[in-house]
Each structure stands twice: as C-alpha cells, then as structure tokens.
Design a protein around this nucleic acid. Structure first.
Lengths: 109, 109
DNA sequence: TCAATTTATCGTAATATTGCGATACAATTT
DNA sequence: AAATTGTATCGCAATATTACGATAAATTGA
C-alpha cells in the first residue's frame, strides 16, 4: 500500500502523470518560468532568487530532470539548466489534446 | 518541514500547482478522460471500469472536486460527475500560456 | 597543491499521498 | 419501516514528498 497502481493504467497515462507531477509544485513552476524567462539559462541563481535552501532547489531541479523536462550542462564550476525542447513540446501537445478533447455540453448533469 | 512553502510563491503559481497535482495521477487522468469520453456523465461505473476499490475511486473524485476540476450532482441514489467547464477552460488557457511562453532558442546551454 | 566556489548527495524530521476494508450515510424500493 | 443500492468517510499501514543542515564532489583560480 501507499504506492500507485501503475499496472492498471496505460503507459501514456503513467508518463503524463509523472511529468505533470514534476511540474505540480509551486517551486518547480517558478523554476520553469524562470528558465523560460531568462535570457541565458540560469543555475544557482535560483537559490538566491527564491527563499529556499540550496539543497532544496537542487532537489527540485533533479526531479524536473528526472521527468525529462529540463537538461543541465556543466559550465565551469556551475551548472546551466534549461528546458528540454523535445519533451516540452511533446507534453504541450499531449496536454492540448487532453484539454481539447473536452467540448462543453450543457446536457451534462 | 515536510510542508510546501506556499508563502514564497504567487497565488497563481500555487493555484496552478494545486490543480496540476490533482491531475497528476494515472487514475485521475483516466477518470478525467472517461468523464470527457462518456456520452453521459458517469458515476460509480468508474469503480467497475478500473481495478480500484470503491473507496479509492471516491477519494480520487474528491480530490478532483477539491481542485475544482469536476462537479458532482446527486441523481437518485447515485452521483453523476462531470468536468467543471469554467475551471477546465481556465486551466487550459493557463497551461497553453505556460507552454507557449517558451520558444526554442538554440543558443541555450 | 590549496583554497574557494558551486552543485550534488546523504540523512533526517515533518507531513502528504495512496489504497483499502469497514462502516456510516442517503435515497430509493419493497 | 426495512431492505437495497450507491457513495462518502474513517482509520490504518505503506510509501512518497518536502525541506534543510551537513557534507561530499567537482572545477576554477591563486
């Protein structure tokens, strides 16, 4: 118990859930927005940007990376993170498909 | 500790995180897809549809309802659930805004 | 090589989530 | 009123998440 029963669902449903879960945290939303907004990709500037400990930010970045949503490149002593274009666009497509599959019928309930 | 530091982030970021969190589970994705797909709104048919206990499905429905993404109407002895159009469209708009705010620059990292 | 800087990882405490059996509750039917 | 049906809630055990201090690891500059 305590574990999600992934066997029951399709690979797509599980993958989508995993990526949305990665996004579904205010800090990670803020990080993604900042990665998008910034001229260049940012690194540990996120730590001073938000009021979270360095370990916490690093952990959030790891989760976004695990979900495949961002990538990190070592640049000297620091690490430069940015959006992973492929995964981002794929998720964008899947989400707009999910949203668009709904059409407002007023004969409902 | 163990609690998300919501004070740090904007109301929008927190709201978006909350709604995405509600979606970010394979069972709840499956439920939403089923609510969208079905001609009429479904109720406890979801229980026999998926291999999850009645209590579990009820709990997932509650979370989707808490996030404002679905609504339930009592219909005799059963309950009819369906997408909450307003919240759904609002989330759709916010997500497409988030996705669209990213433009693929190859000068990144 | 040695310090300095930056990031990752470990360990831990607090809290949240997941799933389910048992049971309560509410509306209908007999 | 009593039984039936469908749903919600409670309580619990297992697991996951969140946040952070401490510390390790990697790279640069002196």
């Amino acid at each position: 118990m305590g574990t999600t029963k992934t066997e029951i669902f399709t690979a797509e449903q599980n993958r989508l859930a995993k990526q949305l879960k990665a996004i579904a945290h205010p800090a990670r939303i803020a990080i993604l927005q900042e990665l998008i907004r910034a001229e260049a990709c940012i690194c540990g500037e996120l730590v001073s940007e938000f009021g979270l400990a360095q370990a916490t930010i690093s952990q959030h970045l790891k989760e976004l990376k695990n979900a495949g949503l961002i990538q990190g490149n070592i640049e000297g002593t620091s690490v430069c993170y940015c959006i992973e274009p492929r995964a981002w666009k794929k998720l964008q497509k899947e989400m707009s498909k999910l949203f668009a599959s709904y059409t407002d019928r007023d004969n409902c309930c």
